[in-house]
Amino acid sequence: MSKNLGTLEETVLLIVAVIEKEAYGYTVSEEYYKNIGQRISISAVHTVLKRLEKKGYIHSEMGGATKERGGRKKRIFKVTKLGFTTLESIQEARMKLWGMMPKYYTS
């Protein structure tokens, strides 16, 4: 499987990294809506999370159950070391590019 990150994958990875609460399907989807302004279905989030996990950017473990969840456990995701470094290198590359932006665009 390719290690490339798609835009959606990158965004979700970021959300998992920055989220204060536990990161799982529902919270990620909510956070996505709050910060990006677009709805994303939970099934899509699950797909992306699964893919990220397969690529090794995040890892997961089962968390506690709550009443709202009808007694079902959560699968909580955390960003791995590889995930962080990848995010950082993407950010670095972006900054470098931004630095090269001609002045008349930014002014």
Binding site: Y24, Y26, A65, R72, K74
Partner: peptide, 15 residues
Amino acid sequence: LIDEIQGDLREAHFH
């Protein structure tokens, strides 16, 4: 998978 899927969906439904 039932835990994460059904859990998430029910939580979303709740909110």
